[in-house]
Design a protein around this nucleic acid. Structure first.
Lengths: 210, 210
DNA sequence: GTCTATATACGGATAGAC
DNA sequence: GTCTATCCGTATATAGAC
């Protein structure tokens, strides 16, 4: 779109301001419900500038979407592929850092998952997550434990789904959860903090062979 | 909208056809991305008829939304308030019936949760889920177990979130999950069938006091 | 690069014939 | 009740001045 200057500007160049505004609003409302006017206003610039920098709403959206997917998956894959920790340690690190990440990006999971529904194969196929996750060192460790008989045998996907779901779901269901539990924002945060310790504990318990 | 006939027609009256079409498309694409023209086409009728029966897109949407919320919560609250089973039995019944329900309505959870984000307090406040769930017989049973020291003490919300998330998340994340695991539709179904037995087992394990 | 003004397209809703 | 044709608001995108 625009060539980088030799001396890069501060992070709030016009282009960055638009991207940040777009990220905020796309995450909150999704592609279809977002109006470019709202992005322009949020960014404090004029509507025409948005098209000057990004040509179209779709193009801007694609950029945000790719970055969001990367953020969504980065911490997962990074941790899962470290070779120098036990799988229990990795779970602790993953759960803790992912909850922190989601506290700063609470709208991201619902955004990614619901946009993926409208747009099934397009992006997913590009980033081959199968290799990334199913053949990761972490999954291998997990399969080792099964061989040793220390945890019950099952498809590794169950394990992955359970861990990720327990971390992510409270953020996806935040409105309902807060309503059911009658939680103020601060109380929600406290519950999430508790889960950093609780989830790894639960995971260690739940797969034990009797 | 339209007064019921004394002899009710078959289920595929025009009004029902439109509602069914609307449900399908709203669930798949959400409110903003759905065009009334698509609903009309899916229903096999003309666009004008849609407005004749439901006045506006919003009105039609509200009807679908309320029904969806009820479906989304009905099986939860029904089972949780039965008085004549142990909590372990209730978990088994809930998980099994809810997974079956979601197999027939795979798009419903993501639909409800993402529309709730745009429309926070509107509907949620109407159906007071706090009373329904937190004061349910099921939660009381759970709290009894904690008093007896049979399961570790914690906020009941953790328990609720974990159970619901393990059931729902695979459906919400189906595109990603299927991509990661390289699953065909049939394989996905098999995994879900397995979870009917696995989730109750995991839940019994994970809260045990050492 | 940034703005104002405007062209153009699209989607929801209605008028009116049958 | 159901259709065709059309209106009209809204949102994206562009032209053109500064």
């Amino acid at each position: 779109m625009k060539s980088k200057k030799a001396k890069p500007e501060v992070d709030s160049s016009t282009e960055e301001k638009i991207k940040n505004a777009a990220r905020t609003i796309f995450h909150k409302k999704g592609f279809a419900a977002t109006r470019t006017r709202d992005i322009a206003e949020e960014a404090g610039i004029n509507l025409a500038l948005l098209n000057y920098y990004f040509r179209s709403k779709e193009k801007l959206f694609d950029i945000i979407m790719v970055e969001s997917m990367q953020g969504f998956l980065k911490s997962v894959s990074m941790l899962l592929n470290k070779e120098d920790n036990t799988w229990e340690e990795k779970i602790e690190m993953f759960v803790s850092s992912y909850i922190d990440f989601l506290m700063g990006n609470p709208d991201l999971p619902l955004f990614v998952l619901s946009e993926l529904r409208s747009n099934p194969s397009a992006l997913i196929s590009k980033m081959n997550m199968k290799e990334l996750l199913m053949k990761s060192h972490f999954i291998k460790q997990f399969q080792e434990e099964m061989k040793k008989g220390k945890i019950a045998p099952m498809h590794p996907l169950h394990f992955l789904m359970n861990m990720v779901s327990m971390v992510i779901f409270p953020f996806i269901g935040k409105p309902i959860v807060s309503s059911i539990g009658d939680l103020k924002e601060q109380e929600f945060v406290e519950l999430m903090q508790q889960r950093k310790k609780l989830i790894p504990h639960w995971i260690k318990m739940m797969y034990k062979v009797k």
